Amino acid sequence: MNFPHDGRYFGFDGAALALDTPVPAAAAPRSRREVIELERRGGGRMPPSIRATALVFEDPRSRALEQRIRLFAASEASVLIVGQTGTGKELVARHVHACSPRASGPFVAINCAALPEALADAELFGHEKGAFTGAVDARAGYFESAQGGTLFLDEIGDLSLSMQVKLLRVLQERSVVRLGARTPRQLDVRIVAATNVDLERAVAAGRFREDLFFRLNVARLEVMPLASRPGDIDPLVDHFLALYAQRGGRPVPKLSVAARARLHRYGWPGNIRELENTIHHAVLLAQGDTIEAEELMLAGVSLSDGRGGESDRLEAALEQLLDEAVEAEVAEEGVFERVNHTLVMLAMQRTRGNQVHAAKLLGISRNTLRTQLTRFGYLPARGER
Rank of each mutant, 00 (worst) to 15 (best):
V218F: 10
V257C: 01
E200T: 07
F214T: 13
E333H: 00
R51S: 13
E292P: 00
G130T: 06
S75G: 14
L362F: 09
G270L: 03
P29N: 05
R220Q: 10
A54F: 03
I191N: 08
A358R: 05
F213A: 12
E329P: 00
L241G: 04
I233E: 03
V92T: 04
P106D: 07
E173P: 07
V136E: 14
A27K: 05
A328P: 00
G267H: 15
F3S: 08
H127P: 02
A194N: 08
H127T: 08
C112S: 11
V197T: 10
Q164H: 04
A205P: 08
A27H: 01
G157S: 04
A73C: 07
R139I: 06
F240Y: 11
E123P: 03
H264L: 13
R307L: 15
E66D: 15
F72V: 15
P29E: 09
E274Y: 04
G377K: 07
E337P: 00
P60K: 04
P253Y: 11
V23L: 12
L124F: 13
L243Y: 03
F208P: 01
P101W: 04
D198N: 11
D6E: 11
T351N: 08
S302I: 15
G126A: 13
A54T: 10
L285I: 00
D232T: 15
D198K: 04
T374S: 10
G42A: 11
M46K: 06
G141S: 09
A113P: 03
V335E: 02
P47N: 04
P225I: 07
P4T: 01
G363D: 02
E310Q: 11
D59N: 15
F143L: 02
S100N: 15
R260P: 01
A194P: 03
E66C: 15
D137M: 11
L216C: 01
R182L: 14
M163H: 15
A138H: 02
A316P: 08
V189Q: 09
N367R: 08
R68L: 11
G363W: 10
